[in-house]
Design a protein around this nucleic acid. Structure first.
Lengths: 200, 200
DNA sequence: CAATATCAGAACAGGTCTGTTGCGTTCCGC
DNA sequence: GCGGAACGCAACAGACCTGTTCTGATATTG
């Protein structure tokens, strides 16, 4: 008996997993909460028997972990000539993610219920926030090294200032009319140049 | 019979209203959601009979409206010599509000369930966001008029950049170790000066 | 074909929440 | 002191969710 051997019996329908994840994303983006969402509702929306869900996931948390994994994609790396362009490019990607209403709703729901879903919250930071943050840090440090960015700035703080306007929009749900390219360049520009008048 | 006349019968206990509002703030900050919170739980926490709650509020929404009103205070106005100081002072107040864990949790819960509580969401914007935003706009415009701030900046966007780092912290719940004075000055400073190196 | 694991659908007990009703008690104005 | 209203406490039916169990049908391996 090899471990790679297929077990006897009917195979699990591969569409069930995806259907359940889709159903959760739909329902959350329609205003449901993580704790308020019931397996009955998810099963109905997914067009799947409640039994199949219980067979796959012991608890709702387990299902949500798979939902979180589904909306996560590793950040691409660019190699623009300037840190300025690299920062804008990464912010544009973040904005695009924010425009994905379903993913945004899921993250918003997760942040609101962080205390009730500690493991989910932990994974969100470890697998989504931290990797992207590291990429941003690296770009900013490179900009400092090349003399493009002032050497006396706090890298983490600069990142926070760049990312915050997007996260704030995501949190409030006010993402309509946000153009990734335009908005990201606008943010980088203002933070590069500052708002102080030349004479002042 | 005058309209100002007290109705016959026992008066409502004035502590009940406050106790219910406090209970909601406690429970929400402990991880409950607006839709998930039950009147049974609220009544127990408030030390009040469930009956008294029903007598005062027809629905949970009505109760939440009173909770929202309780955490709202009108923004003070300053008259510092420079817009820079005024902006920092107002950001410091915003940060102080953010450090109020219970109010922050309530707003976070509200944003996450905006679709389920449209009236609550509408009032949040009308009574809390908009007034403060107007104050910020006025300060920025004044700074432009006095030649302190570049005249070509977008007032709304500058405000967004100033406020966003605080809102983002509030949304993520990462508010520990945030000093209102220091953090607010830091934000204003970085946005005033920009991050671009002098030679670049 | 036999064994096995999945599937959808239905049922069940046990729990919670809602909204309402009833009871006796306490407070307040007249 | 009397009526009226709010109080706490308890009960109720109706609805929902959970976790488990059963059915009969279907798919897959050996």
């Amino acid at each position: 008996m090899q471990p790679s051997e297929r077990p006897a019996g009917r195979q699990r329908d591969p569409r069930t997993q995806a259907a359940a994840v889709e159903a959760v994303l739909d329902l959350i983006s329609e205003g449901a909460t993580l704790s308020g969402l019931s397996l009955v509702t998810i099963a109905e929306r997914a067009g799947v028997s409640r039994n199949s869900l219980y067979r796959r996931w012991k608890t709702k948390d387990d299902l949500y972990l798979d939902v979180l994994a589904a909306i996560n994609q590793s950040p691409p790396t660019f190699d623009s000539p300037t840190a300025r362009e690299d920062l804008a490019a990464h912010l544009a990607i973040l904005i695009e993610r924010t425009l994905n209403t379903r993913a945004s709703s899921m993250l918003r729901a997760l942040l609101a219920e962080a205390r009730a879903f500690p493991e989910l919250h932990r994974r969100y930071f470890a697998e989504i926030v931290t990797p992207r943050r590291e990429v941003m840090y690296r770009i900013i440090r490179r900009g400092i090294a090349t003399g493009e960015i002032r050497p006396d700035v706090d890298v983490a703080f600069v990142n926070e200032m760049l990312v915050a306007p997007i996260l704030a929009r995501m949190s409030s749900g006010a993402t309509e009319g946000l153009d990734p390219d335009k908005a990201s360049r606008r943010i980088v520009e203002l933070l590069y140049d500052g708002i102080q008048a030349a004479g002042a």
